[in-house]
Every structure is written in C-alpha cells, then in structure tokens.
C-alpha cells in the first residue's frame, strides 16, 4: 500500500502513540492571527499542555463559505489585525521552534494558496514544519492541482468525508488522503447543529471499513459531554467554533485581546480534553 511507502509523519506518530494509550485524539482549531498575531501565538504555544493532541490552524479568508458565524468572525478579526498567508507561515515557524512534536494541520480555502502561488506555498509550508492541510474547496476531482503536489512534498492532504459522501464516491475521497480522515458530522457549516450520535457512529464505521487511517469527527462539537460521546465512536474529535467563540467573549470593547483571552481558551481546551479522557477511561 502506498501509505506504507510514505515516510512516517508527526501525524502518524501521534495517532500511533494515542492508540497505545487507548485514548482518542483531541484536535483543536483556532484561526491564525485571531485576535492578533502575538495573542494567537500565545494561544497556540499553550494548546499542547492544555490537552490538544493535534492543532489545526485556520488560514483566514475573506469568504469562508463552509464556516458558520463563529469561524467567519474569527477569520475577519484576524484579517483586520493584519494576518496574511506569509504571517501564518511565520506563526508556524515560531511554534515549531518551541514544539517539534505536535502535528500541525493548516485548514482553509484554495484562493490564497492559488495566488501565492501553490508550489511556493507548499514548499514554504513544508519548510515551516507543517504536517498536513485541509483545503475545503479542492475536491478529489482537482487532486492534480494541490493534493498531489502536497503529497510529493511529504505533506498529508486530509480529506473531508461528509454525510453525502456515498459508497460510490468514498473510494475517490479516500484515494489520496493521508494522516487521518476528517468526518464532517453534519450537512452544514462549522459550529452549526449538534450531530446525531447514532448517525455518526454508523458513518465512521462505514469509513473505517474502507481505510486503515484514523477517522476524526468535527463540525458541531462544543461541550465535553458531546466530545466524550462522539469520541466513543471515532479516533478523535475536532473542536473549533467553541474555541474561537471563547476568544470573542474575552475581547475588550475595542475588539482587542483581553487579559483573559489566552487563559480562557486554554481552560476550555483543558475541560474538553478532560471530557475526552473520561471517554477513554470508560472504554
């Protein structure tokens, strides 16, 4: 199998270690540069200690079509504070200088990469210490554009599988996916309705029959209780909207970071991680 020929990545090592420990991965999402570069860096640097196993970093985009209001607002805050693709790569470089273990996955939309342009962006992303990317609006039909060049550079291209990805389509979605598979638990945008657990369980089982890769579940997971229940039927859980919403609630009236912004995010991550470890303890 092709995946065995690929060099082992931070993502692979992370999931193998979690498997040995018998607990699910906690994947956290925050937007790069939200609410400003320095605060964002402090948030990122403290995430592993607070309990994050994998860090997804959103690349802010003016038109985040797959995102709900919380992530939209987060993206706009970051852009307003001057975040750019170059600064996002710089943020990762600064993180990597202090943490060379935690997997980092960039998440975002195609246009800012396309105009960077793509090949230069992928080179710089690899050199910055990024492990994988999730690009929402580049489907498998366009693998030649970004997915295959990413794989050639040793970057994992993590694909979203959704409730509408039927059995006919699933092989195409999984074909060039590496690292893990991200199951979108609802038809909808990030941070929307809570997923129906029985549906998620059935869908994750269906995907796992077709791939040896870990399957993590995201979109709509907010509380430690939800995370625990979802984690019972998957290899990991993603929480994003709840974190960027926490950032929003700690901002001053001028929209700038408040004294509690960093600690409030780490606190909610800690609580969610504790919820997930509860899931592991019950297995």
């Amino acid at each position: 199998m092709r995946s065995q020929l690929r060099p082992e990545t931070r993502i692979d090592r992370c999931f193998e270690a979690l498997k040995r420990e018998g607990r699910p991965a906690f994947v956290t999402f925050v937007t790069a540069g939200d609410p400003d570069y320095e605060t964002s860096k402090a948030i990122l640097l403290g995430l592993p200690e607070a309990g994050a196993d994998v860090i997804e970093i959103g690349m802010p985009f003016s038109d985040p079509m797959a995102d709900g209001p919380a992530v939209q607002a987060s993206s706009l805050r970051a852009l307003k504070a001057g975040q750019t693709m170059k600064r996002t790569l710089q943020l990762v470089r600064e993180f990597r200088a202090k943490d060379n273990l935690t997997p980092i996955v960039l998440m975002g939309y195609y246009n800012p990469i396309y105009v960077y342009p793509s090949e230069a962006f992928l080179d710089e992303a690899r050199d910055a210490g990024i492990d994988g990317m999730i690009i929402v609006d580049v489907p498998p039909e366009a693998d030649e554009e970004l997915c295959l060049p990413a794989i050639q550079r040793g970057l994992s291209f993590i694909r979203l599988a959704t409730p509408t990805t039927d059995d006919k389509r699933l092989p195409a979605v999984l074909a060039n996916t590496s690292g893990f598979v991200y199951y979108v638990s609802i038809t909808g945008i990030t941070g929307a309705a809570a997923p129906v657990v029985s549906d998620v369980r059935a869908q994750v089982a269906r995907i796992k029959r077709s791939t040896p890769l870990p399957v993590v579940v995201g979109f709509g997971v907010r509380t430690p209780e939800q995370a625990r229940v979802i984690a019972d039927c998957a290899d990991g859980v993603v929480v994003g909207s709840a974190l960027v919403e926490t950032i929003r609630t700690t901002l001053g009236t001028d929209g700038r970071a408040g004294p509690d912004t960093v600690s409030a995010v780490h606190r909610i991550v800690h609580n969610l991680a504790a919820g997930l470890r509860g899931a592991a303890a019950r297995v």
Binding site: M65, A66, Y110, V136, D137, V138, P139, E141, A142, R159, L160, A161, T162, P163, T164, T165, D166, R169, V173, V184, T187, G188
Partner: peptide, 12 residues
C-alpha cells in the same frame, strides 16, 4: 471554471 466546492456539495 471547474468545480471547487466543499465535499458535501460534490455528490449533488
């Protein structure tokens, strides 16, 4: 042109 949309919409 092309089809640059989220996976949820691709089957549709």
């Amino acid at each position: 042109g092309g089809r640059f949309v989220a996976e949820t919409l691709m089957p549709l």
